[in-house]
Design a protein around this nucleic acid. Sequence first.
DNA 1: AGATTCCCATCGACACTCTATAGGAGGGCG
DNA 2: CGCCCTCCTATAGAGTGTCGATGGGAATCT
Lengths: 110, 110
Amino acid sequence: MAQESTNLLQGTLDLMILKALALEQMHGLGISRRIEQITKGTFQVKPGSLFPALHRMEEAGWLASSWGESENNRKAKYYRLTKAGRRQLETETERWGRISLAIARALEAS
Amino acid sequence: MAQESTNLLQGTLDLMILKALALEQMHGLGISRRIEQITKGTFQVKPGSLFPALHRMEEAGWLASSWGESENNRKAKYYRLTKAGRRQLETETERWGRISLAIARALEAS
DNA sequence: AGATTCCCATCGACACTCTATAGGAGGGCG
DNA sequence: CGCCCTCCTATAGAGTGTCGATGGGAATCT
């Protein structure tokens, strides 16, 4: 209760991750923080949701990863978009547009 | 593949059902058709998704039902919103507004 | 050394949607 | 009357995805 705003919509997490990685590669927790930032705190992605999603998306060929060093000198796995990932970002962005438009129309109907 | 547009987002079905019943009571298949109509075909709710949702929502106290006759002389169970259901509609509408705004902002960010 | 922070990872529970399947009941038709 | 089609409700089984809890390694600080 009083959790305010966790609980993502199904399929939305993928879109947020893809978008977070559109500009630059990032490591897991960085992605999480970035999503929280660009949604102004509306979405808080917990590790238990994030990492399974990252693995799934890498498996799907949308992301590629490599180990590196974080800005705090910690070992970190950096993820970046593949070409397929960029296509997927476009696809899902467009899908989101269709869906949100449909719902908006449904809600404004008398 | 090529399914175009089924697959609702988690939590969205409830909102669509509540909205469909906002004006008048309807029976199950009528709700399904109405949702398809007000979303201009973007969402197609199959019976296997609809009925479990209706039962769950009635259990939650948002809907009430009674048997009657459909416009085609068939036995049909009519659902209507309870007061709690109307409150829930407001709550979920507002929740949707927050979420869709957050995602829209996230997507338009450079 | 101990505590804290940063980072990755997995597991079990839980919720929701889909596909497929089933069956009763009314209406049309030969 | 017997058959088939449509309307309407319903359930079971599978798949998927998110969450909460938990754990552990490594760098930094005190």
